[in-house]
Amino acid sequence: MKKGLYLIIVLVAFNCSEIIEVENISNNTISILAPTDTSVLTEANVQFSWNLVEDAERYKLQIATPNFQNTLAIKEDTIITATSFSKSLNSGNYEWRVRAENSDYHTKYATQGFSVLESDAVNISNEDIILLAPANSIIFNTTDTINFSWETILNAENYTIQIATPNFANALEIIENETVNTTSFSISNMDAQGYEWRVKARNLEYETAYTIQSFTVEE
């Protein structure tokens, strides 16, 4: 009888040791990164993001218009495991909220309001960037200053220029990744090796494809 009782106690103790305690996250706080309160956005594709909550397994995100107190429509009600989410929204006023959850607990919602305005940006996505200099496949010395230039795209607000080695398909390093408001860019003290450079134009809502050319730097 004593032997049987001892066995039961051992089994109960063993089973209790297998119980995994779930961390109480109910007092944790979610920090919203974007969009923040009273933000005015001109892009329909809204990027939502927030900080990671330790011991959370997932996040519940909701989007309402115009707000949760006077809701006309719930535009999104979803569970995700990442700390970011994107959603295309029409122009209007919105409120969004997110909370962290695990199997037993959840935080309070963090809530922010924002507006989406219609953009009058012109669609430039079918425009081609014309690269002027340097000419394709040209060779420079390591002491040269390399001046890049390209033609203006009407209705573009800025340009992204990137330089990679040896090329973008098999890039070992992105040497430059700059956004500029002009149609020129300069760089010097380049290492001796092969490079590709590319430029695209952007405005608030649209962007062109990249145009790519190559050059080489030698000793």
Score class of each variant (00 low, 15 high):
122 V>W: 04
94 Y>C: 02
114 F>C: 01
91 S>K: 12
119 S>A: 07
65 T>W: 12
96 W>I: 00
74 I>K: 07
84 S>D: 08
61 L>G: 01
98 V>I: 04
102 N>P: 04
58 R>D: 08
80 I>D: 00
115 S>W: 09
54 E>G: 12
101 E>Y: 11
67 N>R: 09
120 D>T: 13
113 G>D: 13
73 A>E: 08
110 A>G: 07
54 E>T: 13
52 L>I: 14
118 E>T: 11
111 T>F: 07
84 S>C: 05
110 A>S: 11
62 Q>H: 09
59 Y>I: 04
98 V>W: 07
113 G>Y: 10
60 K>R: 15
71 T>L: 04
107 T>A: 01
65 T>K: 08
65 T>P: 11
65 T>L: 07
111 T>E: 05
60 K>N: 15
96 W>D: 00
70 N>W: 14
110 A>M: 07
69 Q>A: 15
69 Q>M: 14
115 S>K: 08
116 V>E: 06
65 T>F: 13
118 E>M: 13
87 K>Q: 10
70 N>C: 14
111 T>Y: 11
109 Y>N: 01
86 S>C: 08
54 E>S: 15
58 R>M: 13
88 S>L: 10
76 E>D: 06
115 S>H: 10
55 D>C: 10
119 S>F: 12
83 T>D: 03
95 E>I: 13
58 R>H: 15
54 E>L: 15
101 E>I: 06
70 N>P: 12
106 H>P: 00
76 E>A: 03
67 N>F: 10
85 F>N: 03
110 A>I: 05
84 S>W: 09
82 A>C: 03
59 Y>H: 09
95 E>N: 14
122 V>T: 03
66 P>V: 08
73 A>L: 11
81 T>V: 06
55 D>L: 10
57 E>C: 11
104 D>P: 11
86 S>G: 10
66 P>I: 04
114 F>Y: 03
115 S>N: 05
105 Y>T: 01
121 A>S: 08
109 Y>V: 00
63 I>V: 14
75 K>N: 14
72 L>Y: 15
89 L>C: 06
68 F>K: 00
77 D>Y: 11
86 S>T: 12
117 L>Q: 11
77 D>A: 06
104 D>I: 12
58 R>V: 10
117 L>V: 03
68 F>Q: 00
96 W>H: 03
78 T>M: 02
